[in-house]
Design a protein around this nucleic acid. Structure first.
Lengths: 260, 260
DNA sequence: GAGTGGTCTAGACCACCAC
DNA sequence: TGGTGGTCTAGACCACTCA
């Protein structure tokens, strides 16, 4: 484990990375391991869906006990960055797997069962970031972004009108053609084609009256109540890489949430 | 640990509770400990806010190692049933603590900072459960329930209109006077006066147009868009003990959510 | 200083999976 | 059969709290 320089006897005193400052800010070994694993994920050493080395091998590599590696991986599994599979190994989480494909989609049919929505691409263009988009994506105003507009339909009826903004620098080849050809989930495309993996998101939800444009696209009378879902998605290192503004019809669907 | 009957050598073979059925459904020791701890919580052996026995003492009581108790408590802490405090002990989670007082309230001012809402009780009456309320609370239609209606205000302006239904059997002394006198959060009252502790909740969120009654109470024109938040809260053993129907004004507030 | 939870290690064995 | 994660133990020491 390169970051750790202090000498250490087995089962002996405090272990700590070298640190010149006062109050060296104790950080447990397993947290330091976690940082190293995180870095490997971030630089793509182990791509989404692949197996990472076994606990024993990582323990050898970092010169710590298997239990310490285990605790680091435990936390990362709880954060849904890794997935453990007994007998097989530990895998990098991916939006491509069936279990996690629509992990961030909270819209649910009232009837029960998972949402099965068809997509209809309305627009995809490159433009300069407005002040609001720039702030959300931590860009400078005027930097290039990709704007996507699409509809999601359930049984032919429009249910969601989505607007997305993505940093242009990280989504260079993204075009209407790319999107039209793609069969899987958006986040799957982002992972496999642009090496951008979404790990968490924040949403702000409001009710509002449909404006004429949204009403027309969603086949509603203007003024009809809609759910506005504003999402900001983050990749490794808390970097925002997507702003999304969804308008949801909630006559036959709802936004499901779990509080604990 | 009374439930475990198989003989066991230290650091030796499989340990399992007695079980006559086929495929004995292996359950790890720490899960069995968890069940025992859960039962103690459920019967009120350790009330909300109190310390539970130390890991060492529990290990002795159940005849397992401290690490096994630790793992059971770890999971319960992750589920927010227990709270660990280094140097002090492990405590039963409570809605009375400042950190967890409004844990289930996702309404947030756009300006930032936590919501500081005043309450105004509109109604509190005992009645018979409608079919819908009975289904949600897993009662028989016609069984007694308590219905509460109240407003939440921010800076004097109404923001939330809440309707609550509670099983009458578990909230016997609950009345308008009780509610009017109470200063803290509702869930704090439920814990301390009725021994009902909410541990998780499900919410379904929709947008709808304000009906005349709601509009009047929320000082809005009829038809204005509102967030409808339907909550079902559960206590130990997945028993539903509250149905709540909240109408939220979202001009200056939003419902905040975190996806991971 | 005594007691609590928190970290770390080492070793044994079990459950699951693939070859 | 061998490798992976999963469980369990025992023991040492650290960090934190409070009297």
């Amino acid at each position: 484990m390169p970051a750790r320089t202090a000498s250490r006897d087995p089962a002996a005193g405090t272990v700590q990375v070298a640190d010149a400052g006062p109050t060296p800010a104790f950080s447990p070994l397993y947290q330091q391991i976690k940082v190293l694993l995180l870095r490997s994920l971030q630089v793509g050493e182990w791509p989404p869906g692949s197996v990472i080395p076994s606990e024993t091998e990582l323990a050898g590599r970092y010169r710590v006990s298997q239990g310490t590696v285990r605790k680091a991986i435990d936390e990362m599994a709880a954060e849904r960055l890794l997935v453990r599979r007994q007998g097989k190994g530990t895998f990098v989480a991916t939006h491509a797997a069936a279990e996690t494909r629509y992990r961030f989609l909270r819209l649910t049919p009232d009837a029960g069962g998972p949402a099965r929505l068809a997509r209809q691409l309305l627009d995809c263009r490159r433009m300069r970031a407005s002040a609001e988009v720039a702030r959300a994506l931590e860009l400078k105003a005027g930097e290039p972004v990709v704007e996507v507009r699409r509809l999601l339909l359930d049984g032919g009826q429009p249910v969601v009108l989505d607007d997305l903004w993505l940093p242009g620098a990280q989504f260079r080849g993204l075009s209407a053609e790319t999107l039209a050809r793609w069969r899987g989930a958006l986040y799957e495309l982002f992972e496999s084609e642009f090496s951008v993996r979404m790990i968490r998101a924040e949403e702000k939800i409001r009710a509002l009256a449909a404006d004429p444009e949204a009403a027309a696209l969603l086949a509603l009378p203007p003024g009809a109540p809609l759910l506005l879902v504003e999402r900001r998605s983050f990749t490794y290192g808390e970097r925002p890489v997507e702003l999304r503004r969804g308008l949801y019809r909630t006559e036959r669907h709802h936004y499901r949430n779990e509080l604990s």
